[in-house]
Simulated scan of single mutants.
Amino acid sequence: MIRLGLFDDHDIVRAGFRYILEGSSDIQIVAEGATGRAALDAVRKTPMDVCVIDLSLPDLSGIDVLRQVRASTPETAILILSAYPEDQYGLNVLKAGASGFLSKELATDQLVQAVRTVAAGRRYVSPTLAELLAAGLTEDIEQPAHLRLSEREFQIFSKLAVGRSVTEIANELSLSSKTVSTYRARLLEKMNFKTNADLTQYAVRKNLVQ
């Protein structure tokens, strides 16, 4: 039996995922909630094999949750779901250490398979994402600027792009403001931008923010 946690801030979406998952006799939902902090609390208190988390939660992002779960309970597989297309966030989510990434558009057909795959200790990669990973091995393919960022740089980029201040980000990630400012300067240089407004415009253009 696969013990699973399900976390998405939209009740209707979560109900749909629950319906899909409960149709499988080998999957048991042992915890669910609408926030990143609820996910972290559940992982600490309830043994689970797989935690399915929405990338965009109201308090912490799926990547924020992923980092903390990896540090505290690395045996729990993390499957990130997102309304964003795979070519925008998938590679960065896998690079951050997720066991898999799945677009919500594909969840109806692929969610159960993805859960079983990561529960077995393997990474779930859709055919689309597999093509992107293969393309990334070819040096002459030009990748989008955000894919050149490290895991932490991308995490901070995502917060800057939606208008979070350096101080807010520092508090959320338990870092100093100086450290966040250093990451900000580094990612701006990598992406060849000068201001936070440039980051926001890029994120909107690439459908990285809603």
Score class of each variant (00 low, 15 high):
Q68V: 04
G62S: 05
H146N: 10
S150A: 02
L94I: 15
I156H: 00
L188Q: 13
D140I: 11
P144E: 09
N92E: 14
R14Q: 09
Y84A: 14
D49Q: 07
L208D: 04
N92A: 12
E172R: 14
M48N: 05
I27K: 00
E131I: 13
N196F: 08
R186W: 04
I169R: 01
L55E: 11
L91G: 08
R70F: 03
Q113T: 15
V93Q: 09
G62I: 02
I156M: 00
R164C: 13
P58D: 08
G36F: 00
S72R: 07
E22D: 11
V69M: 03
T167S: 15
V115F: 04
V118R: 02
A134V: 13
I2C: 02
G97K: 12
Y183I: 10
T117D: 08
A145E: 11
G136S: 10
R184I: 06
S174A: 14
A96E: 04
E172F: 05
D11H: 10
E153M: 01
E172V: 14
Q88L: 12
N207L: 09
A145T: 07
A77C: 09
S181L: 10
P58H: 04
E131N: 11
L173K: 07
A71F: 02
S176G: 13
S25I: 08
T46I: 15
S150I: 00
L81G: 06
D198P: 09
R18H: 09
V43P: 01
V118M: 13
H10I: 13
G62H: 01
I169E: 07
E153I: 00
I20E: 01
T138F: 09
V162S: 00
G163D: 12
E168I: 05
I78P: 02
N207W: 06
A114D: 04
R3I: 03
L137I: 05
F101D: 07
T195E: 10
G33E: 06
G16S: 05
R14K: 14
S25C: 05
S24D: 15
S24R: 06
S158G: 10
A119H: 02
I2L: 03
Q113N: 13
L175V: 09
A15N: 11
A134W: 07
V30W: 04
A31C: 06
D8S: 06
D109R: 14
S99F: 10
A38V: 01
V50A: 09
Q155I: 02
A31E: 04
I27Q: 01
L149M: 05
T76L: 08
G90W: 11
V43C: 10
K206P: 00
S177E: 15
L55P: 03
T108V: 09
L137Y: 08
Q88C: 14
E139Q: 12
Y183H: 15
K159M: 01
A134H: 08
A34P: 01
T179E: 12
S24H: 09
Q68R: 15
E131H: 10
L149A: 11
S174I: 12
S181G: 15
D64E: 11
D140K: 12
R152M: 15
S61N: 04
K95F: 05
N192L: 14
L160C: 14
D198C: 05
I29N: 09
G36L: 00
S177V: 08
V93C: 10
L102H: 01
A98R: 12
S72P: 00
Q113C: 05
V69K: 03
L137S: 10
Q28Y: 06
